[in-house]
Design a protein around this nucleic acid. Structure first.
Lengths: 226, 226
DNA sequence: GAGCGTTTCAAATGGTCGTTTGAATCAAGT
DNA sequence: ACTTGATTCAAACGACCATTTGAAACGCTC
């Protein structure tokens, strides 16, 4: 946590968890302060209101997130390898298979995405935007002639596929038997979404009759395929 | 609205709008009753509590929705044409380009998907499930050898791409310039997602260097491409 | 250790929430 | 016209909410 003041830091952490769990309206200052172990009046002293606390909590939450954009050596990989690694990392965050127990951060982010408040601008500018920019760099290499709009919608197709397992998780569970749902681990989904996307871009053979991800296409493949 | 009682019907309608707009915690019984033009005590008389009203409102809301599964002649079309029509109809619902002003119904549905309550089971069973079943029928024709899990994840890839423009709408806007965002109308997105998906399945040529959706592949195309 | 600005605290404030109440009103059978 | 059961109504209930208050506790300089 960036804040030097331990009370503010504890409040931001506790507020993030409570807001993620119960939403803005559902979370109470009382519960936040109990969780933080501070007096109830501290919220209105350090922040001016519940709204301000929420905004600060959202910003603070994603400042602690490990950013894909910061750690992955995407430039040193081929476009297809970079894309696979990006999807893998994205899914890993989405599926909350994280070593630390900070599963509430992405939950808070989903709430802000679906029902944006004033904190959304900061969230996009500092976290989502740079992360998406890395994806656009990869796609710029796979589709050198594509215009900016096209790059964006291809990016949205990739991100949309990944986020669906977070956003509509409850529905996905109910649409499948439990045993089939349990097959959808990180590796399976990475293979599927990567294969699906690479085939769409002509960088791998299409999903076969059984729907399995195809193999990589050799260089200069796009001419061959057309 | 199915309910014969006009008071219950007005309450369910008003509750749906308020819950969609403000969420369960944010919506108030007072505001719902004002919107419905009924007395405040009517909620606890006709429904037992706010929770029950919410559950009934969610179920009532999607019972009025026009179901893709009911009206489209998917079986009479080729798989590729059926898929395009399905994606078009799905996007049309998602983007809320609907003649009636019932934009709040899909909003209520999104809330229930992201934060499911007891109403989620009914929602999946009666609305989402049958709709997804139609998609699975189409995909069963395009990927005859695929197992059930594979059909599901391919379906999720399609639905995920479409829903992203609803779920993450605010983020999509902020990631693009306004003029570029305005390009993303129903036709553009239908072309893109259909082309992306058909290419991934080997039913169309991959997106070209400019990222534009490719043309349809002739029959027995999968052997040619491999 | 006196003075002073900052931070914490228990308690209270006013407001709004979901729910309840009991009387008023309505509809229909006799 | 009277009875009876169902529905509506204005008003009030207790609970909980975010926020405020003023005193107490703290950290620091002189």
């Amino acid at each position: 946590m960036l804040s030097q003041d331990p009370t503010k830091a504890k409040l931001l952490e506790a507020a993030g968890e409570e807001f993620a769990l119960n939403g803005f309206e559902g979370a109470t200052i009382r519960a936040i302060c109990v969780r933080a172990g501070v007096n109830q009046a501290a919220v209105n002293y350090h922040f001016r209101s519940k709204e301000q606390l929420y905004a600060q909590a959202v910003i603070a939450a994603h400042q602690c997130r490990t950013h894909i954009s910061d750690e992955l050596p995407l430039e040193s990989l081929s476009p297809t390898e970079a894309l696979r690694l990006y999807i893998y990392s994205f899914l890993k965050n989405v599926l909350e298979i994280q070593t630390d127990g900070a599963t509430w951060r992405s939950e808070l982010m989903m709430r802000e995405i679906l029902h944006p408040t004033e904190a959304c601008d900061a969230l996009v500018k500092e976290s989502i935007g740079p992360q998406f920019e890395r994806l656009r760099e990869i796609l710029g290499r796979t589709c050198p002639e594509a215009d900016d709009t096209r790059i964006h919608v291809i990016g949205f197709s990739i991100v949309g596929q990944c986020l669906h397992y977070k956003m509509a998780n409850a529905v996905c569970r109910r649409l499948m038997t439990t045993e089939r749902y349990d097959q959808l681990n990180l590796d399976y989904l990475t293979d599927h979404i990567t294969g699906f996307t690479l085939a769409a871009l002509g960088l791998a053979t299409p999903l076969d009759g059984a729907g399995s991800p195809g193999s990589l296409v050799q260089s200069a493949s796009s001419e061959v395929l057309q």
